[in-house]
Write a protein that binds this DNA or RNA. Structure first.
Length: 597
RNA sequence: GGCCCCGUAGUUCAAUGGAUAGAACGGAAGUUUCCUAAACUUUAAAUACAGGUUCGAUUCCUGUCGGGGCUACCA
């Protein structure tokens, strides 16, 4: 049983017996004592003042005395205003270290809840390469999956690829018209870049046609856009695709194949992966059954023109189209279908969709429509909505060409890591392949940490130069701290590190060591909180705090200067555990840590 | 217009309704016989505004002002 649970348990007993009332449930919580005060846990006693019929100070004093009598783990307490600060005794912290110091799984729940949790993330379109926005999405999705696994969930990571529709037909048309049979091999470009280029080509050629039409025939721009030859050809191509035209499908498969190969490279560099990939080309028809079901149940209505709608005004939303008048499905219809499909595939207890906040409304509608249909999984849908990523130069706009390409960004992070490390001149003894892997670890660590340390729902500003700073709240700083501890442990020598036991007496534990122990103790709670809020930022900020505390400890107390003593053994064991927790927390963010740097 | 999200030091980010609102970068001043100075110490600097709820509000509620998003028979 954990310390705070033991305390709270005793506390509720005391309150019931002494004040004759059950304590209000929401008041029975402990918080970590703030650094400026002495103590480990703090109880706010204001909620009990009324039933105690004493002043806040007297109430705290009374509760403190009672707890001291009951809990052998409690060393002392002090009272400041209505705050009761409790200090666990050195023995408790010492035992904690003894128990956990050799546990590689510290902080992770080992028993697994068999009900799967499904996490959808990435969700790319096949007509554009991945960009900075996708990077945030991928990192968030992967990290959330890792965190959920750490709190004992069985996680299924899925991707939903939007591989069909007018946009990919535009790329196909441009390639057929202007491509001269170009392939990624002949052009020396990743496949997703090649296809993306032809999408851009389509748009620029279309723009030229529109300008001409609008100029010579004085059409409105909207009309010109709709009637331009390229646009009607693209529509025609989509019709052929939907009819299953063999030639069209062959081009489509070839080009999508290029794209997937390109995506896979990017995913690998980002370190993300999926258990299952859904393709919209295979699922886009599946929502129609649900529409029929809704019509039968009378929760949807068919209008005179044949289109099908749902009225959500009773939920404070508008009417929403579910099926076009020509009987084809729209975005939301597909999402209804895929939700059902996933439910059938996995029967998940929770379905998490990592999708940008511009789709908040869409997911609100999706959930309510499924609820109207009486689907059991409607309430399991959770939209993990995240904010936009902006750059120091301003917002990303694809039209203005200010989109940051994911591969280019990854390359830049690598280069910056190399430049910075070379400037500092500490890597001469590494071989070429070691260097390459180190720059990769550093560059990606910088990128991932910088993005994940921010609360997902907030818009954020990504500054590449700042992210790779080796100081401050950055990935490289944490990686550096880890590498330094590993270096210390190597110096300590095998026999000391392997020391079976630590025999230091509890009263030799000093304040900085206690601080460290207390922070380590919080690690499991941090994961738990991050898991329930689906927020990796908790883990990121925790690991930074741990590193800072270790640096302070390290600065003040040499780890090795009392060789072969109890103190030295103790500090080495403590360092070892700090290193392990840093590594574990970085693992939850998908960040690698270097053994030396 | 309607709906949703966000406003915290110069900047980027923290703070389950709790104590004197924390860090980091940048600014100012210091610390090298030392296991990594890629460190540490000191210092100045902020809750957009106005009400309300309560023992207590950055946090919850209302309004105002700013920023962003959504409001397609696109996805």
């Amino acid at each position: 049983m954990k310390a705070d649970e033991i305390i709270l348990d005793a506390l509720s007993g005391i309150i019931r017996e002494s004040f004759g009332e059950d304590p209000p449930a929401n008041a029975l919580t402990l918080q970590r004592t703030r650094k400026e005060f002495e103590g480990d846990f703090t109880l706010v006693v204001y909620p009990f003042v009324k039933m105690a019929r004493r002043s806040p100070e007297k109430t705290a004093e009374f509760i403190g005395q009672q707890l001291l009598g009951r809990l052998p783990e409690l060393g002392s307490f002090n009272v400041i205003k209505g705050f009761l600060n409790l200090s666990l005794n050195a023995r408790f912290w010492f035992d904690f270290l003894l128990k956990e110091m050799n546990n590689p799984q510290f902080g992770f729940k080992t028993e697994v809840d068999p009900t799967p949790v499904l996490v959808e993330y990435s969700s790319p379109n096949t007509n554009k390469p991945l960009h900075l926005g996708h990077v945030r999405n991928n990192l968030l999705g992967f990290s959330v999956a890792k965190i959920l696994e750490a709190v004992g969930k069985k996680v299924v990571k899925v991707n939903l690829v939007n591989d069909r529709g007018i946009h990919i037909c535009k790329s196909m048309l441009a390639w057929l018209k202007y491509g001269n049979g170009e392939t990624p091999e002949t052009f020396g470009k990743k496949g997703d870049k090649l296809v993306g280029d032809y999408y851009v080509r389509f748009e620029s050629e279309l723009k030229a046609q529109v300008a001409e039409l609008a100029g010579s025939k004085s059409m409105s721009e909207e009309e010109a856009r709709r009637t331009a030859p390229l646009m009607t050809e693209a529509q025609e191509l989509l019709r052929k695709w939907e009819l299953g035209d063999a030639e069209t499908l062959a081009v489509w498969r070839t080009m999508n194949g290029w794209v997937y190969k390109g995506f896979d490279e990017t995913y690998e560099k980002l370190g993300v992966s999926f258990e299952k990939i859904y393709y919209e080309s295979e699922t886009y028809l599946s929502g129609k059954d649900l529409v029929s079901e809704g019509l039968e149940k009378g929760v949807f209505v068919r209008r005179d023109d044949g289109s099908v709608w749902v009225d959500l005004s009773d939920h404070g939303l508008d009417e929403k189209l579910l099926l076009r008048s020509d009987g084809t499905s729209v975005y939301i219809t597909q999402d209804m279908g895929t939700a059902q499909l996933r439910y059938n595939d996995f029967k998940p207890g929770k379905m998490i969709y990592v999708v940008g906040n511009e789709q908040n409304y869409h997911f609100e509608v999706l959930q309510k429509v499924l609820k109207k249909l009486g689907k059991p999984y409607a309430n399991t849908i959770f939209h993990l909505s995240y904010g936009m990523v902006e750059l120091p130069e301003g917002k990303m706009k694809s039209r203005e060409g200010t989109v940051v390409d994911a591969d280019e960004l990854i390359g830049e992070m690598f280069d910056t890591a190399r430049n910075t490390a070379e400037e500092l001149g500490k890597i001469q003894d590494l071989g070429e392949s070691e260097k390459t892997s180190l720059f990769n670890v550093l560059g990606m660590g910088a990128l991932k940490y910088f993005i994940l340390k921010v609360d997902p729902k907030k818009n954020m500003l990504f500054n590449p130069a700042e992210s790779i700073d080796f100081n401050g709240n950055t990935g490289p700083f944490i990686q550096y701290t880890y590498a330094r501890i590993r270096s210390i442990l190597r110096l300590a020598g095998e026999e000391v590190v392997a020391g079976i036991n630590v025999t230091i007496s509890p009263d030799r534990i000093n304040a900085k060591e206690r601080n460290l122990l207390r922070t380590l103790y919080e690690f499991p709670e941090t994961i738990e909180a991050a898991g329930s809020e689906l927020n990796p930022a908790h883990v990121a900020n925790y690991s930074f705090e741990l590193c800072r505390e270790y640096n302070q400890f390290y600065h003040e107390y040499s780890v090795l200067n009392e060789p072969e003593t109890e103190v030295s053994h103790f500090r080495i064991k403590l360092s070892e555990m700090v290193a392990r927790v840093i590594r574990n927390s970085m693992m939850l963010l998908g960040i690698d840590v270097p053994e030396r740097m």
